[in-house]
């Protein structure tokens, strides 16, 4: 293997293809997932403020609205949302360490795997609690 600049994939118009940033595997995927989870959370946030605003209309309407969240399909959606929030939060801390910690760039790769590890450790108790709430009746 010869070391050297990686060839930049380009579109037919000659622009760099698609996703802009191309770091190493861990850096690239962390960056992609950070963007995807971020957009997902933002869209949910808009809906979530609107559904919560129903408390201002009447207790009945709010309970009816929040009732639509209490089935297993929405329950799995909530699990996905929490998964997205936890990754975004943990990877956000990693981004700050890369930016502000003097050794951050050197350890960005092990930190990416630490994010994955902590994410699993936090998801397991949450899923046990949440899935038993959804399916336990």
């Amino acid at each position: 293997m010869t070391a050297g600049p990686l060839p930049v994939q380009t579109t037919q118009q000659g622009r760099p293809a698609g996703t802009l940033y191309r770091g190493d595997t861990e850096g690239m995927w962390s960056w992609v997932l950070h963007r995807i989870t971020g957009v997902l959370i933002f869209v949910f946030l808009l809906v979530h403020v609107l559904d919560t605003a129903m408390v201002r209309v009447s207790p009945e309407l709010y309970n009816e609205t929040i009732g639509t969240y209490k089935n297993w399909i929405m329950g799995l959606g909530e699990a996905g949302l929490v998964a997205a929030v936890l990754f975004h939060a943990l990877n956000g801390i990693r981004v700050m360490l890369v930016d502000f910690w003097s050794k951050g760039t050197r350890y960005q790769r092990p930190m990416a795997w630490t994010v994955v590890g902590l994410w699993v450790v936090l998801m397991v108790p949450f899923l046990i609690r949440h899935l038993s709430n959804i399916f336990g009746g």
Binding site: V55, P59, Y62, N63, I66, Y69, K70, G75, E78, V82, V85, L86, A89, G92, I93, V95, M96, D99, F100, F126, R129, H130, N133, I134
Partner: peptide, 30 residues
Amino acid sequence: RMSGVVLVVLVLGHLFVNLMVGKGVAALDF
């Protein structure tokens, strides 16, 4: 970055109190 640090505490605290404590999502009502 500054808002991110604060949001980690606020959002994870929000999720913990509303989804983990007590009966979780089943207890949410008016």
